[in-house]
Computed example of a mutant assay.
Amino acid sequence: MAQNQQASGRAAREPGTPGALSRWLQRKTNARMNRKIRRGRGTFMGMDVLILNTVGRRSGQPRETPVAWFADGEDAWLIVASGGGSRHPDWHANLMAHPDRAAIELPGRDAMPVTPHRLGGADRERAWQRIAAAQPRIAKYQSKSDREYPVIRLTPR
């Protein structure tokens, strides 16, 4: 039997990737959070949360993900692709693959098409300082990761 297979014959899971139970729990949690946001209550652990609507990069299927956001002026939102520290979350890959099909839902409001812009350099640093000041927990997670979390600015399309 190949080294990358378990005794049951299934391929071994890569370390750091979610198993079936973890994926099921994530779907249930996301669905509950999405219902809460649509009813007009959009906070989680002291952070404002929106629903990010993307399209699966491989499947082409619609995806909805609750994501913490930070105001960037009157009509822009910043989101951070932390993904638990080890890798970019799936929503980030979907968003970058189909940026023209992205939308957000803010608490109690209809979906709004947005254009994502991945920030870099001084723009990212200024945004990151505001995010870290507003939510020190994110800065703590970043300090424990070997990768720089992408910061995405969403603007109305």
Rank of each mutant, 00 (worst) to 15 (best):
A11H: 12
T65Y: 02
G73S: 07
S22W: 04
R147V: 11
D90M: 12
E74N: 12
T43C: 05
W77C: 07
A122S: 08
Q26N: 14
V151T: 07
D48C: 05
D110C: 10
A2F: 14
Q6S: 14
E64L: 12
Q5W: 11
A132C: 00
G84M: 06
E74L: 06
Q61I: 10
P89S: 06
M47Y: 09
F70W: 02
T54C: 10
G56D: 06
H88A: 10
S145A: 15
R118Q: 14
W91K: 09
P107V: 04
D90G: 10
Q142M: 03
P99L: 07
H92I: 02
A31K: 09
F44S: 14
M1I: 15
N53D: 14
A31D: 13
Y149W: 14
R153P: 03
R118W: 09
G121Y: 13
P99K: 06
A12Q: 15
E148P: 06
D75R: 13
M1C: 13
W91C: 07
A31W: 05
W77D: 08
A7H: 10
E74S: 14
V67Q: 06
I131T: 01
H92V: 06
H92E: 01
Y149D: 05
Q6T: 15
M45Q: 14
R130Y: 02
T43F: 08
N53E: 15
T155A: 05
P136T: 01
Q3C: 13
P62L: 05
Q142A: 11
P136Q: 08
I131N: 02
D90Y: 12
T29G: 14
A134G: 09
A139C: 09
I131S: 00
D123W: 01
Q3V: 14
R101E: 12
G56T: 06
T29P: 00
P66F: 08
V114D: 12
E64A: 11
M96Y: 11
G73Q: 00
R35M: 02
L106T: 10
E125H: 03
F70R: 00
T43M: 03
A134V: 02
R130P: 00
A127R: 00
K36Y: 08
R39N: 10
A68E: 07
E64W: 07
N30S: 10
